[in-house]
Nucleic acid binder design. Structure first.
Length: 422
RNA sequence: GGAGGCAUCGCCUAGCCAGGUCUAUGGCGCGGGAUUGCUAAUCCCGUUGGGGCGCAAGUCCCUCGCGCGUUCGAAUCGCGCUGCCUCCGCCA
């Protein structure tokens, strides 16, 4: 949610951001709604003040001697009350129309975000590491994984349908190793590890900005009115909803580990092979709550952690800054990391790091209190390690002629083996 | 799943049965100040969070878990929901 006061005072700024996104929102209609709402609010509040005064007069007029006066005052208050009832109903309706309209306005866009739409408009920030050289015929991750017997999508589809997988044997240890390595690096920088609930209320989905926009991507448990989170971002951001965080604990950094569930509606035929795009995967996610003036730096900090992890995994990657037209509604600025997949001869998105400024905080009402006052915090999130896709990158980049996969030294203390074999 | 209980401004707490002067009591904590002096004490003032109007001073409205209702008027009465606690059942 954007700040309605900002819209009121500087509609040009909001309009410019919307244009860069290519978002079609009738701002003038919202501004008009806001004006009408505030005019009516004043009327209602004046009537309430009058009612409060009248109530006091009634209370003061106790005893038989004052009964006539009292009856007159009650009659007067009845009229007031009747009028207020209508005004308040009108006000409530106007408010909910305004809230609905505001909830559909996407966030502002960072001045440095590249203009444009689509992949071509993304800015290449840097490319790190050289593609490995091989002297044998390369396999893609699925061929490597199947040959090793560590990925089984065929049986998974028997049990759960397409876009599911069994991970077996050393792949399981590899998962725990990746997560443990990421966790320890982040804990060293003060991130608090957390395993959040993954079944959440609609409120949490709305508060983080996934509803109403991305409702189609979310699994719903209808009987309990709960939703399966597509990322730990949802329960972690919501963890401090309606709280005022003490200034001396800022910034608050978490690294959450959770299974993620995504319906992948509308992606039929895309990434159908292997475990690149599945309905269920595990991920360690960074999340920060920080002071507003610190969020630009915090964003770069999260990105630096992501890059350090990919460097430790010895995977060539590139950093992209996502163009204004491709930002999700809550995002103010976003960096993706894409890993190079030599076996598939393509780049694969493996992390995503966003600064949502106060967009989520306003919906979730997460504030911090310091001497200068109580402010909404800024929230940021970034992938520490998306296990499935990290495995894909490892299998393709570190495959060896005999079908085994080399484990980079930084990961070996966590796997307990240096070569992944059958 | 069944039965019962609880929810007040950071924490504790009064108020609820018997609706109006509740602009919510007191304590703790916190912030500011005064006084006395010695390892501290006493006193005074302030201290929920939002919102509207206003250059400001200020002023008004909302907020007693949430919602709906009854009523001229709800912290207080009724209904629903949520959360927590106790017991039973079930369970990793």
């Amino acid at each position: 949610m954007i700040d309605v006061k900002l819209l009121r005072n500087d509609p040009g700024l909001v309009r410019a951001s919307l244009e860069r996104r290519g978002a079609k929102v009738d701002l003038d209609a919202i501004i008009e709604l806001d004006n009408r709402y505030r005019a009516l609010l004043q009327e209602v509040e004046a009537a309430r003040a009058e009612q409060n005064q009248a109530g006091k007069r009634i209370a003061e007029a106790s005893g038989p001697a004052k009964a006539p006066y009292r009856n007159q005052a009650i009659a007067e208050m009845k009229r007031l009350s009747e009028r207020l009832k209508h005004l308040e109903a009108e006000l409530a309706e106007l408010r909910s129309t305004l809230d609905q309209a505001l909830s559909e306005v996407p966030n502002l866009v960072h001045p440095d975000a590249p203009d444009g739409f689509g992949d071509e408009a993304n800015r290449l920030v840097r490319e790190v590491g050289a593609p490995p050289v091989f002297d044998f015929t390369l396999k893609d991750h699925m061929d490597v994984g199947e040959a090793l017997g560590i990925i089984d999508t065929e049986r998974a589809s028997k049990v759960s349908g397409s876009r599911f997988a069994y991970l077996l044997g050393p792949a399981v240890l590899l998962e725990f190793a990746l997560v443990r390595m990421a966790m320890e690096r982040l804990m060293a920088d003060g991130f608090v590890p957390v395993i959040p609930p993954v079944l959440v209320r609609g409120e949490a989905m709305y508060g983080t900005g996934f509803f109403p926009t991305d409702e189609a991507q979310v699994y719903r448990c209808a009987d309990d009115d709960l939703y399966l989170a597509g990322t730990a971002e949802v329960p972690i951001a919501s963890m401090h909803a309606r709280e005022v965080l003490p200034a001396d604990g800022m910034p608050r950094r978490y690294v959450g580990y959770s299974t993620c569930f995504r319906r992948e509606a509308g992606t039929y035929g895309r990434d159908t092979r292997g475990i690149i795009r599945v309905h269920q995967f595990d991920k360690a996610e960074m999340f920060s709550f920080c002071f507003p003036e610190e969020s630009d730096a915090e964003h770069l900090r999260l990105l630096a952690h992501e890059e350090a992890i990919w460097q430790a995994l010895e995977i060539p990657y590139r950093v992209l800054e996502i163009c204004a037209g491709d930002l999700a509604a809550p995002n103010y600025r976003k960096f993706d990391i894409e890993a190079w997949l030599p076996g598939s001869n393509r780049w694969l998105e493996v992390t995503s790091c966003s600064n949502d400024i106060d967009y989520q905080a306003r919906r979730l009402q997460v504030r911090t209190k310091r001497e200068s006052g109580t402010d909404l915090v800024h929230t940021l999130n970034g992938t520490a390690v998306a296990v499935g896709r990290a495995m894909v990158a490892l299998l393709e980049n570190h495959q060896q002629a005999d079908g085994s996969v080399r484990i980079p030294p930084a990961l070996q203390p966590y796997t307990g083996f240096d070569v992944l074999t059958q």
